[in-house]
């Protein structure tokens, strides 16, 4: 009577299920299965998961429709790039974020203190006189940036109905670019990301580039 180690038993069972056993090996395994209920259980489990996996894989990957579609055989293959709604919506979201960021950047000088004076605005650094952002209350990220005269900066989106949303300028480490004219600045490295405020139902769009960090609030109707 054969007593197999667990590894050997598994190996035999798997090869039996795959049809890779010789007749004599299969006979040995059958004897072991008769003798050993644990071996029978293991074989049943493997047979079951084989069936589940094969059915799932064939359902998911069995169709040529992705490449062939419903085209006649004479038709050449479709283009390699296949746009799906998920991709389209991601791209649309990215474009929207970028557009909002660019719009805000272009109009930023009008919301800064003394922003009405174009010549002054061009000569002044973006965040005037701040050594850093002063945190207030429990929301340091929303700490109001203050201009040279200490007044809170008005939201760029105030016209859209969102009032008193502070702007935050990170001026802790001003770079040499800081004093260059804003109009005509070439932003080489710019990122946008959003932070969602559940309580206010607002998305804070945060733009980061080499010279400044800005937070804009966007009302969401989810």
């Amino acid at each position: 009577m054969t007593h197999w180690a667990q590894n050997e038993l598994e190996d035999r069972i798997v090869r039996a299920l795959d049809g890779e056993l010789s007749a004599s090996e299969r006979a040995e395994l059958d004897r072991e299965l008769l003798r050993n209920p644990a071996a029978r259980r293991l074989m049943d489990q493997y047979r079951r998961i084989d069936g589940q996996a094969a059915a799932a894989l064939r359902t998911a990957l069995g169709s040529d429709a992705n490449v062939l579609g419903t085209a006649s055989p004479a038709r050449p293959p479709r283009r390699a790039t296949r746009w799906r709604w998920g991709s389209i919506s991601l791209v649309a979201a990215a474009v929207l974020l970028l557009a909002v960021g660019i719009w805000a950047a272009v109009h930023a000088r009008h919301w800064l203190p003394g922003g009405g004076d174009d010549r002054a605005a061009r000569r002044e650094p973006l965040a005037v006189g701040c050594k850093g952002v002063e945190p207030t209350g429990t929301q340091p990220a929303l700490a109001a940036a203050r201009g040279r005269d200490g007044a809170a900066v008005r939201s760029p989106l105030g016209k859209a109905g969102v009032e008193d949303v502070p702007l935050m300028y990170d001026t802790a480490d001003p770079s040499p670019f800081f004093d260059t004219p804003r109009q005509g600045d070439r932003v080489i490295d710019r990122h946008f990301f959003g932070v969602f405020d559940e309580a206010r139902r607002e998305l804070y769009l945060i733009e980061v580039d080499r010279v400044r960090t800005r937070v804009d609030a966007i009302s969401l109707d989810l």
């Binding site: 894989l57 990957l61 040529d64 490449v67 062939l68 055989p73 038709r75 050449p76 293959p77």
Partner: peptide
Amino acid sequence: GEALMALVRRHGRWVRG
């Protein structure tokens, strides 16, 4: 091009695998 279609039909599944 038809040869490509035939190959996809014959071998597409393992390529997907």
